[in-house]
């Protein structure tokens, strides 16, 4: 029986002769769940992929561009979904309750975007040792594995409070939380960072800055949702 990986509802397989002879595309989400996603369609901010009325650089990105330290560190963010309450539900089950298997279903949403992106190294946003132990796994590393790629660990995180518990202002003012600990030769490399969600961009800009300092020429990020 084929059932939705998230809501467990049974899924009807398509009928007819075609379905009988063709290998059915495996689907992880049922129609009802897919209908709850807000897929980003239409004009977006060219830098951070925020869903906009017109395709121009958003205010957030303008602030980043004006920032003396982080300007130009992250070349582009690519997101698939706009953050909504369903996205929050799915991420809660995946990250906080630790339902690892959902990585495959989330990766399924990301894979077409991954194909359109060129990179030499693909790396996760690291968790601190404490947080990784608490959750049992690193959610962005699991996404990379589920996408069929081999993650290269380039960064390490010092233990700090959860980003999601902070206000926007606090998040923007957090000092650097990562350290570059990669063993690779980085000069001239194109790096893709994978994470679950782009909120203020702080996490990704911090990571990108270190990667650029280590020699990377281009740093992009692929995130499931842009909030």
């Amino acid at each position: 029986m084929n059932s939705c990986l998230f809501c467990q509802k049974e899924m009807q397989l398509p009928g007819g002769f075609q379905a009988l002879f063709q290998k059915a595309a495996q689907s992880f989400w049922c129609e009802d769940c897919i209908a709850k996603w807000a897929f980003i369609k239409g004009p977006t901010c060219p830098t951070c992929h925020r869903w906009m009325e017109t395709a121009e650089i958003c205010l957030d990105c303008k602030k980043w561009q004006a920032d003396p330290i982080y300007s130009g560190c992250l070349d582009e963010n690519i997101s698939v979904l706009a953050y909504n309450s369903f996205c929050q539900q799915v991420l809660a089950q995946y990250k906080y309750r630790g339902d690892y298997i959902l990585a495959v279903a989330i990766a399924d949403l990301l894979k077409s975007k991954l194909k359109q992106t060129s990179f030499d190294l693909i790396t996760p946003i690291p968790l601190s040792e404490e947080r990784r132990y608490e959750r049992g796994f690193n959610q962005s590393e699991a996404l990379i594995t589920a996408l069929g790629k081999k993650p290269t660990i380039l960064l390490t995180r010092m233990h700090t409070e959860k980003q999601s518990k902070k206000t926007r202002k606090e998040r923007l003012e957090t000092p650097q939380v990562f350290r570059f600990t990669g063993q690779q030769e980085m000069s001239g490399k194109k790096v893709l960072i994978v994470d679950d969600i782009y909120t203020t961009g702080t996490t990704l800009y911090h990571a990108a800055k270190l990667l650029k300092e280590a020699g990377a020429t281009e740093v992009r990020s692929l995130t499931m949702a842009r909030s």
């Binding site: 089950q93 630790g98 339902d99 298997i101 132990y133 049992g136 796994f137 690193n138 699991a142």
Partner: peptide, 27 residues
């Protein structure tokens, strides 16, 4: 049941139960 590479015990294939996951993960 599903499996995951568990940071708590170091096993690559640590079982966990999805059915009662909302009450905390039994692995």
């Amino acid at each position: 049941l599903a499996t995951y590479p568990c940071a708590r015990c170091g096993n690559e294939q640590c079982h966990y139960c999805r059915n009662c996951l909302m009450m905390g993960r039994v692995s």
